[in-house]
Design a binder for these strands. Structure first.
Length: 864
RNA sequence: GCGGGCAUGGCGGAAUCGGUAGACGCAAGGGACUUAAAAUCCCUCGGCCUUAGUGCUGUCCGGGUUCAAGUCCCGGUGCCCGCACCA
């Protein structure tokens, strides 16, 4: 028999057209649809221009779930859209003299075509981009609703300011404290900006984490820590030496009031009102404040910077120790936006305080003893002692353990009216103002008479003007006269439109809800949203573990408060997939080379990379995340042209567990492609023979082939439910090995029937992963239907179980023998049978065992 | 700096709740088929050994708990992700 090779270039577009023509993946979200519903969503892409392998991995995983759930009888919602606002479009506009809008929609068209060639089971009728006027008009409405419900306000906040380009920079655009284009030293500037009151929901967002049973534990932990609830005391320190300062006392927040007896200094933020007041008359302090402002706004920068302080010449009285005074410093490591912007320093029991104390030669008094040596204070050199311990030399707290000492300190301070207990959260309000063009305009107007006035609902949408240029840095909206100058919605007098646009995180905080009714005249249809939300399975990168997911959780609540729906948690199940990584070639001196520009040679185990254009050798570097800067990318288009979408999909699912990084290798892709051909060959060999065969009769036919079929079917269902695609794939390999082992010459009726059943099951279980190949095989096996529309086959429990189990027998924890037992055997039966074995008798040497442990269905351990 | 994660053969990984470490795949070596190559099929494949044995050893390093540890606990090392204006 001759077999022809499978040609994905011919079959894949053909089957995609069949699915498309029959609207196979369109979802019916109407209320009268009584099928159980399932919403699977992958994080939508930013339209950068081309899809990358990370997208292929992400969307393949979601596609397997979507196709599997559809086969299981669910009405499946699996949509796609574009996170289309953002900086890269403006950067492209500046570099290539394009318009952000044209650039973005061109990119969307290109990427849509690429995604479609992957054969994804997506309902494309729901597609939208966040830069579509229809979408951001609804978002402006939500903003006005939030404003009405007191969830939005204005306050001052710092931004990175490039004094040469005269523009605000994102943290990403600040490199080593300098502007990425101008190279100028970046400064901090205060601007009045819009904020969402996410911090009102701190307690709620924290508490509800417990209900997220289908989220990874690590993401829940990261969110908990991010919200950062801490109980402590707001302590008043009366000024002793205060000179020009008006305040009578300095108020600080501390989670460790138990260590007050070890306090040796006070530190306040450079932005603290007292610091700023004193700086007015003190040039050196003014200088210090300026230095702190050059630090950059990111938390990592602040905390990595060397601890620096400025003695303000003030002192405060210690609340407990009569006559003790503490000097007050301004310090660069104290954050104005956490607590009260002031701390007391206890160097012995806080590492930052210790670093600071060592630098400025301040007293270090240890007041906590370790649990091992409870009688003497822990001796501190350059490492602060922060573990649990016993308080010592600490007045009323002496002798207490950390937790009780904290309670005691708060009680005593509160009694004397020196402090109040306070719960603090690390979570800050969400600043959404961006001084940029390519975003959703904030629908408010600034009027000299009326102040800040919300736009009227009937004036929405506030559309972005298209006649803008990007030849000079800054926000073109600021210099657009006709767009900017408007009549005040309240008094009608000349006023100015807000030119800030919204953070793109706002766009991505509710798109999942819009997909349910993408054309609705309101942001969502409450009935449909309540039926379809939360998203059953959300899949995306771990890099979104905190911000995007937390903002979306806030948004669901805010939209519910505003009456749009009644949902608190947006994502029932969450899965964070790993990255696609690749070897790098080159270095920073000679530059980096793409895998496609090189040939990898292998000589006696030694690998070298050689340039295709001039034959020069290029050093092989580490395996890193695929990125434009290292050029270690593989274009999905090339792969799909060479091997087809099914091969790319299969490779992205196999080998690595989905939550871990996967390395793209040519060998792996070739291996995946060989498997595609192997299945096609197997089906061709058997197609004619099984076409006329009956399905196996249910009576006592327990061939190993049928057992393998039903065991595989059972296991793969479980694996897909758990998103363990790599394990499902290993089982498919094993199953194909079994099927390939059956010789065509063995054409007795039961074998052919079992083979027919096995091949049908094989094609149905690979269909979610390699849908085009599956369709082609399904047809070859004589089916007139499309396999993508078929139900999921049912396994027979009796066939999916083993008749006999092989148990290992250990002697003193080392495996020495095996024993076959029935699954129903009792522990004492297993024990007796095990002890009767020759091997076991030999080791026992006439003695009786000390102990025999029998773990049913697992192991026997004989302890001698 | 802070928060979170990961570490198993030459490589990716498997090992359900603490119960046979290395399933499955890739690479490599040997063989079959072929004029030859590709494709395909078969075999071997963690390390060690005067004893080739249901032998010893082995899951990043050092301790510990347990009848039993890749898995749990304590202490290290290395790498990765996030840090609020990248998306």
């Amino acid at each position: 028999m001759t077999t022809e090779r499978y040609n994905p270039r011919e079959t894949e577009p053909r089957w995609q057209k069949v699915w498309d023509d029959t609207n196979l993946f369109e979802c019916d979200t109407s209320a009268d649809n009584e099928k159980p519903n399932y919403y699977v969503l992958e994080m939508f892409p930013y339209p950068s221009g081309r899809i990358h392998m990370g997208h292929v991995r992400n969307y393949t995983m979601g596609d397997v779930v979507a196709r599997y759930k559809k086969a299981k009888g669910y009405e499946v919602l699996h949509p796609m859209g574009w996170d289309a606002f953002g900086m890269p479009a403006e950067n492209a506009a500046m570099q290539n003299k394009t318009h952000p809008k044209g650039w973005t929609y061109d990119n969307i068209a290109a990427m849509r075509k690429q995604l479609k060639s992957m054969g994804l089971a997506i309902d494309w009728s729901r597609e939208f981009a966040t830069c579509d006027v229809d979408y951001y008009a609804q978002q402006q409405r939500l903003f006005l609703d939030f404003l009405k419900h007191d969830l939005v306000y204005r306050k001052n906040a710092k931004v990175n300011w490039d004094p040469v380009d005269m523009t605000v920079l994102a943290n990403e655009q600040v490199i080593d404290g300098k502007g990425w284009r101008s190279g100028a030293d970046v400064e901090q500037r205060e601007l009045t900006q819009w904020f969402f009151k996410i911090s009102d929901y701190s307690e709620e967002l924290l508490g509800a984490i417990d209900t997220l049973n289908d989220w990874p534990a690590k993401v829940k932990l990261m969110q908990s820590n991010w919200i950062g609830r801490s109980r402590g005391a707001r302590i008043k320190f009366p000024f002793v030496k205060s000179e020009s300062v008006v305040e009578k006392e300095l108020i600080c927040f501390s989670t460790r009031p138990d260590t007050l007896y070890g306090a040796s200094f006070m530190a306040i933020a450079a932005e603290h009102p007292i610091t700023l007041e004193l700086a007015k008359t003190n040039a050196k302090l003014q200088d210090f404040v300026q230095q702190c402002r050059k630090m950059g706004t990111s938390a990592a920068d602040v905390e990595k910077a060397e601890k620096r302080g400025f003695d303000l010449g003030l002192t405060v009285a210690h609340p407990f120790i009569e006559g003790k005074e503490l000097p007050v410093y301004a310090a660069n490591f104290v954050l104005m936006d956490y607590g009260t912007g002031a701390i007391f320093g206890c160097p012995a029991h806080d590492q930052r305080d210790l670093d600071f104390a060592r630098k400025y030669d301040l007293e270090v008094t240890s007041v906590v003893a370790s649990l091992d040596e409870p009688d003497q204070p822990y001796s501190v050199e350059n490492t602060a002692f922060i573990d649990d311990g016993i308080l010592i030399n600490s007045g009323p707290m002496s002798g207490l353990r950390k937790a009780e000492a904290i309670d005691k300190a708060i009680d005593v301070l509160a009694e004397n009216n020196q402090a109040e207990e306070e719960i603090n959260f690390r979570l800050r309000d969400w600043g959404i103002s961006r001084q940029r063009y390519w975003g959703c305009p904030i629908p408010v107007v600034h009027c000299d008479t009326c102040g800040v006035v919300p736009e009227k609902y009937e004036n929405l949408p506030i559309e972005l003007p298209e006649d803008v240029t990007f030849d000079i840095p800054g926000n073109p909206l600021d210099r657009h006269p006709t767009w900017r100058n408007v009549a005040c919605p309240s008094c009608g007098r000349p006023a100015k439109r807000e030119t800030d646009t919204m953070d793109t995180f706002v766009d991505s905080s509710w798109y999942f809800a819009r997909f349910v009714t993408p054309q609705n005249e309101n942001p969502v249809d409450p009935k449909a949203a309540n039926k379809w939300l939360p998203v059953d399975q959300y899949i995306g990168g771990i890099e979104h573990a905190i911000l995007h997911l937390l903002y979306s959780r806030f948004f669901s609540r805010a939209m519910s408060v505003a009456g749009h729906m009644d949902i608190s948690e947006p994502f029932k199940g969450l899965f964070t997939q790993g990255m696609v990584v690749h070897e790098t070639y080159g270095n920073k001196d000679i530059g980096w080379f793409q895998p496609a520009e090189l040939e990898i040679r292998e000589d006696e185990g030694k690998r070298t990379a050689v340039r295709l254009d001039n034959g020069q050798e290029v050093p092989i570097g580490g395996i890193e995340k695929m990125s434009k800067s290292k050029r270690n990318t593989v274009d999905p288009d090339d792969i799909m042209q060479t091997y087809g979408a099914d091969t790319a999909r299969w490779f992205m699912l196999s080998d690595s567990p989905p939550e871990r990084d996967v390395e793209w290798t040519d060998a792996g892709a070739e291996g995946a492609h060989r498997f595609v051909q192997r299945i096609w060959r197997l089906v061709q060999i058997w197609a004619d023979t099984v076409a006329s065969a009956d399905l196996p009769s249910s009576d006592a036919d327990i061939s190993t082939l049928r057992k393998a079929t039903h065991k595989t079917l059972k296991a793969i269902g479980e694996d897909i439910e758990k998103l363990s695609f790599n394990r499902a794939i290993a089982r498919i390999y094993e199953f194909v090995n079994v099927l390939s082992g059956v010789k065509l010459e063995t054409q007795d009726a039961p074998t052919v029937s079992a083979m027919r059943e096995g091949l049908f099951v094989l094609i149905q279980v690979i269909a979610p992963m390699m849908p085009h190949l599956a369709e082609e095989c399904w047809k070859a096996l004589g089916n007139k239907t499309v396999v993508s529309a078929e139900g999921w086959p049912q396994f027979e429990n009796s066939l999916a179980q083993d008749d006999l189990l092989v148990l290992p027998i250990q002697i003193n924890g080392k495996k020495r023998a095996e024993i076959e037992v029935s699954p129903e055997a009792t522990p004492s039966e297993i024990e007796d049978a095990s002890l009767a074995l020759d091997v076991v008798q030999k080791f026992l040497d006439g003695k009786s065992p000390k102990k025999v442990i029998v773990v049913p269905k697992r192991i026997v351990n004989v302890v001698i």
